[in-house]
Amino acid sequence: MRIKSQYLFVIVVMGAVVLYFVVRSLFSLGAPHTAQAKTAVQAGSPSVQAELVPQVVRPYDVVIRGRTQATRTVVVRSETAGVVAETPVLQGGFVRQGQVLCRLAVDARQAALDQARAALRSMQLAQQQNEQLAKQGFRAPTQVLQGQANLDAASAGVRQAEIALAQVNIKAPFAGVFDHRDAEVGSYLSPGQSCGTVIEIDPLLVVGDVPETQAASIRVGAPATARLVSGETLSGRIRYVSHDADPQTRTYHLEMTLPNPRADVRSGLSAEMHVGAGSGPAHLVPVSSLVLDSAGRQGVRYVLADGRVGFSPVTVLEETKDGVWVTGLSGQVELITVGQSYVADGQKVRVALAR
C-alpha cells in the first residue's frame, strides 16, 4: 500500500521534532553544573570598576572654623570724679589716639592750678632772696636748703594740679572705633567708671581652635587665608598658637592677623581659616570612594598587583568640587570606584576600568 505524499511529509516533520527534543535533553544534563560553576566563579571573583589615581605634591592646609575679633578692646574709664559736660564723639565713630571721648566739668580744678602756680612763684622769689643773702653771709646753708625744699614742693603742687585738670578729658588710648558709649552728658562718673569702649580693628584678628592632632603642623608666621560668611577671602599670617590645650576640648587657641585699613570687616563674623602646613604627597579621589573598614577607620579600597583588594586609611585634607584630597596612599593606585562597599580586603576581583 502506498502512503500518500502529504502523510509522508507530516511523519518526517514529527520525527524531526522528536529527534530535536531528544538531543536537547541529552545535552542539558550537564547544564546545571555549568551554571553553578559559573555562578561560583562570579561569587569568588566579583567585578569592580577602578581608575588609576596618580600621586601629586600638594600644599597641606589645616581648615579651622573661627571668627573675626578686634585686636584690642579697652573699656576707657575715668581717673577722677566729676559730671560729664561733653561727649564729642558719636558712638560707632572712628577716633584717633588721644582724641577726647568724654569731658568732665572743670569745677574748681582750674582755680586749684592757679593757686599752685601762685605759690610756686612766691617760693621762687623767696629762694632767690635766700641765695643772695647767703652770699652776703646773712643766711645759713640749712636755710637755703629749706627754701629749696619748699620750692620743690610748690613745683610738685603745680604738677599735681595740672594732672588733675587734664584728667577731666577722657581720651582714646589708641586709634580705632568708639564702639560703645556708657556715659551721657549730665552723668556723674566716679574714679574707675566707664566712659565707653574702644576697639582696634586694623589689623583684625581671626581666632579659632585647632585640634591636638593638627596643632604640631602649624607655625607662627605661617601664611593663612580666611573666607568670611560674605564670601570674601582675606590673606594674613598666624601670629599666635597656644602651647597649653583647653582641658575640656583638647584644642589649642590660634590667632591670625590680617590688614583691615578701611575697617570694612567687622568683629564677630564667622570665618573658615585655611592655614598653610607645608606640602607633601596627596591623591584626589571621589567622595563616593571613601569607605569604613571593620575597625571604623575611614579609607579607600584599591586593587593590588595580584588582583586582590587592598585597604588604606586616609586623612582628608580638603574637599573640592572635583573630589577630596587625601593623604595615606603611596604612589599611583588603582582605586576602586564602583563596588568598593561589596568587596573585602584580600578578595580576588575582576577589574573593569571606570568610564
Score class of each variant (00 low, 15 high):
Y188M: 15
I3W: 11
F178V: 05
G15I: 13
T233L: 12
H33T: 13
G236W: 00
A126F: 00
E200C: 08
V265I: 15
A40M: 03
V74P: 00
P259F: 04
R181H: 11
V48Y: 04
L335N: 07
L52T: 14
Y188K: 13
P247N: 14
L90F: 09
E86S: 05
L329E: 01
S288Y: 03
L292F: 08
I163A: 05
P259N: 02
G176C: 07
Q160F: 01
A37R: 14
L151R: 02
P203R: 09
P203Q: 07
V63F: 04
V207R: 08
L101Y: 08
S5H: 14
A352M: 14
V291C: 03
K38P: 02
E184Y: 10
F94H: 08
I3M: 15
S294L: 08
Y20V: 01
A175T: 14
N130R: 02
T315Y: 04
C102R: 00
A216E: 08
A37C: 03
V177D: 00
G307T: 10
D152Y: 05
L353S: 13
Q347Y: 04
R239V: 15
L335K: 08
S288G: 10
R250W: 10
M14L: 15
V63T: 12
V324R: 03
E51R: 08
D246G: 14
P313Q: 02
M123D: 06
E79F: 01
V106T: 14
R65D: 10
V291A: 00
V95S: 02
M273G: 01
E200D: 15
V314P: 00
R58I: 06
A85M: 11
D322N: 13
Y240R: 15
A50Q: 02
A154S: 11
Q6I: 09
D107Q: 11
G299R: 00
L204A: 03
T68S: 13
